[in-house]
Each structure stands twice: as structure tokens, then as C-alpha cells.
Amino acid sequence: MKKISFEAVSPEFLRVNSCGRQLLGKQDYHCSRPYGRIDYHLLYLRCGRCHIKTAERELVIEAGDLAFFYPGEMQDYRFLGKDRTVSCYVHFTGSGCERLLERLFPKGRRFYHIGLDQAIDEVFNRLLFEYYSKKKQYETVCAACLMAFLALAARYCENRSAQGSGDLLMEESCKWMQLNYQKKISICEAAAQCGLSVSRYAHRFKLAFGITPIQYLHTIRIEQAKEMLRSTDCGIAEVAELVGWPDANYFSRIFKKYTGLSPYHFAKATIEK
């Protein structure tokens, strides 16, 4: 396939062509672009899952994952309504894109796990505000916001790589919880997945990450709940069930313990902002 000239797309170093946050409803959504786009496409998941088909394989990315589609590359991805996905996207171009991505993500991969982080959220929200308000110099500010987003993403990738626990079995257990947090899973089940007793599993997990398996599972669920309360119109009981807590009262107690606010007051504060 002929390589696209980035300079022909935009003479600027970095330019945001469009951006947004998609709150996928109960209907499935499928995007198919056999010849890709003329610009770069960044996809970052805040909640849910995205099923992606590339020329080499099929994979599923989840909350906290970042995907890049380069100009001219096939795009084939699907959101399932049952996953209630919240997806952030940016289409961008410029003469400096290739060099910038090579410097920040030297391994050249298309998929990364950067996690869920308030600093990244704030930068992306600022990008959306600038792009849609279109105040003076908004294009320059948008480019700066995107560069900050990419730099933070690269930093978190490096930190996660450097801070690996060294216990691959426990890291696989974390991934299993990330995949199954919406279900009514237990620590007994998590231990069984690893072929360990509950006491041995809990000891190894805390040794690897400094927190208990329950604390880790709660953190995943709370982060997902925060995003749903911030970005969707789901009620508290519905959010509780979607993140794996069918008891809304128990969910509210745990949520307040971790955030200092009840789900109701958290959602209200988000709206007031």
C-alpha cells in the first residue's frame, strides 16, 4: 500500500482534525474502513470493550487501553451494546506525527495499556472543551492538549513496564479480574484460576502489588463506576449492577469509602463542574 505523505495532509507539526467521547448505548456498533483514514486515529477506552480485527489477528481491548490506527491502515472494530462502552477518540495529522509517535512509543506497537487516571481525563476533557468551544487559538491549544495526552500515556506505559511485579501468575490474575469485574466473582474463584489456596493466593498477591485482591477488585469497580456516573445517564442501582455489585446499598458504602463521596454526590459534583 502506498505510504501517505503526512506533509500533504497538514503542513503543521500537529493538528487535531476531530475528537470526541462516545457513550455507546445498548445497540451494537460496527466500524469498517478497509483502507483506513487519511489521518491518525487514536482510541482510548474509559469503560467497556472494543473488538478489533487487524490484518494479523483479532483482539479485545478494554478500559484503560489505548489503540492507534495509522493512516491507510485497515480499521475494523466493533462495540457490543451489552458492554456499555465509553470510548474517547482523536483524529489527528501533521508533519511531526510520525516522529512524535516514534519518540514516545519507540516499540511501534498499536495497542497499549495505560490504565485509568485522573490526569489523563483532565487533559482529554480540556481537549474536548477547546475543540468544541473554538475560542481564539483553539487549534494550537488542542495540539498542545493532544501532545500532553500522548506524553502522559507514554509515561504510564513506561511506569507500568518498570514497576512490573515480577510475578507473572499474579499479573495474569489482575488481567482476569479486569475481564470479569462485572460478574459476581469471588477471591476463592480467583485463587482457583491460579491453582492456589486462598491464603497462598492472597499472600502472593499482596507481596506482588502491596494491596489485597479484594482491594484491587474494588478499585477496578470503583473506577468503572466513576466513569459511568460521570459520562452516562445510568442510575445508581444500574451502575452498581454493571460493575458487579447487585446490592446498591453495599455499592454506595464501598464507593464512599474509596472516594469520600456517595455515588449521588459524586454524580452531582460532576454535573456542577
Rank of each mutant, 00 (worst) to 15 (best):
Met1Ser: 15
Ser10Glu: 06
Phe13Pro: 15
Phe13Trp: 15
Asn17His: 06
Ser18Pro: 04
Leu24Gln: 10
Tyr29His: 10
Cys31Asn: 09
Ser32Pro: 02
Ser32Met: 10
Arg33Met: 06
Pro34Arg: 09
Tyr35Asn: 13
Tyr35Leu: 11
Asp39Met: 04
His41Pro: 01
His41Thr: 06
Gly48Ala: 08
Ala55Lys: 13
Leu59Met: 15
Leu59Asn: 10
Ile61Ser: 01
Ala63Leu: 08
Gly64Asp: 03
Leu66Ile: 00
Asp76Cys: 04
Asp76Gln: 05
Arg78Ser: 02
Phe79Trp: 04
Cys88Asp: 06
His91Ala: 01
Phe92Asp: 00
Glu98Thr: 08
Leu100Ala: 06
Leu101Arg: 01
Glu102Gly: 07
Glu102Ala: 10
Leu104Ala: 06
Phe105Glu: 01
Gly108Thr: 01
Gly108Ala: 02
Ile114Gly: 05
Val123Glu: 03
Asn125Ala: 15
Glu130Val: 04
Glu130Ser: 12
Tyr132Pro: 05
Tyr138Phe: 15
Tyr138Cys: 07
Thr140Asn: 09
Leu146Asn: 04
Cys157Tyr: 09
Ala162Ser: 11
Ala162Asp: 08
Gln163Phe: 13
Gly164Tyr: 07
Asp167Gly: 05
Glu171Phe: 03
Lys175Thr: 13
Met177His: 07
Leu179Arg: 15
Gln182Pro: 09
Lys183Cys: 10
Ile185Gln: 10
Ser186Leu: 03
Cys188Ala: 15
Glu189Arg: 15
Ala190Ser: 09
Ser197Trp: 07
Ser199Glu: 12
Ala202Ser: 14
Lys206Phe: 07
Phe209Met: 02
Gly210Glu: 00
Ile214Glu: 14
Tyr216Leu: 00
Ile222Thr: 05
Glu223His: 12
Ala225Trp: 04
Ala225Val: 01
Glu227His: 14
Thr232Pro: 01
Gly244Glu: 00
Gly244Arg: 04
Lys257Gln: 13
Thr259Lys: 05
Phe266Met: 05
Ala269Pro: 02
Glu272Arg: 13
